[in-house]
Amino acid sequence: MIYVLCGKELKNGQAIRVYRNIRKKLFSIQDKKTRRLIAYADSLLLTDVEMKIVQSGQIRTRKERQKNIHAFIVGTYIESNKKSASESPNWKRVFYNPYNTDTFIDLESGKPVYSALSSYLVDGKCFVITEEC
């Protein structure tokens, strides 16, 4: 479910950046251009995805041992439902741990992931399709 903030708008095809909101246990969605918060979601689907990590924020997190917002999934929002998005067998789980990794990492192979064709964010986890099948 997507919770759009009052006076804000989230449209199909909109460029957004997303981060995991630990306190709300949801994904926070920002407009890519303005970087203003526009919505929260428990799941969403993106295309043309890039994984962005702000290095200064990563360094600060490691130094202070306190998490801050510095890692984003950037892409184009696509309206979908959970069932259709989760049916593809090609999703690979990726993760990012600011204390142990410098980039988003493919859970199976251990290789860095910098971009993907699609990303499905659900239950605090990130799944990607990195190549066409």
Score class of each variant (00 low, 15 high):
85 A>R: 09
32 K>D: 12
74 V>P: 00
132 E>P: 00
22 I>F: 10
122 V>N: 14
96 Y>M: 08
124 G>H: 06
2 I>M: 13
72 F>K: 06
76 T>V: 15
109 S>G: 00
117 L>V: 04
74 V>Y: 03
131 E>Q: 10
61 T>N: 11
105 I>K: 04
91 W>H: 08
47 T>D: 07
125 K>Q: 13
75 G>V: 09
92 K>E: 09
32 K>Y: 06
47 T>G: 00
130 T>Y: 04
78 I>N: 12
116 A>G: 09
110 G>P: 10
100 N>R: 13
10 L>I: 12
72 F>W: 15
107 L>P: 00
23 R>E: 15
42 D>S: 11
128 V>Q: 07
24 K>N: 05
13 G>K: 12
13 G>Q: 13
128 V>E: 05
97 N>I: 03
102 D>H: 09
53 I>T: 03
38 I>V: 10
114 Y>G: 11
1 M>Q: 03
42 D>P: 01
12 N>L: 10
16 I>S: 01
127 F>Q: 08
33 K>L: 10
65 R>T: 04
62 R>S: 02
83 K>F: 14
87 E>R: 13
131 E>N: 12
30 Q>P: 00
105 I>S: 01
100 N>D: 15
93 R>W: 00
34 T>Y: 00
123 D>E: 15
66 Q>D: 08
109 S>P: 01
64 E>L: 15
118 S>L: 09
90 N>E: 11
31 D>P: 02
45 L>K: 04
133 C>E: 13
13 G>M: 05
104 F>M: 13
14 Q>R: 08
116 A>P: 03
104 F>Q: 04
72 F>C: 11
68 N>E: 12
27 F>C: 06
12 N>P: 05
52 K>T: 06
63 K>M: 08
112 P>H: 01
53 I>V: 15
79 E>S: 09
115 S>P: 03
91 W>Y: 05
126 C>E: 09
31 D>G: 04
119 S>V: 05
97 N>E: 03
41 A>N: 04
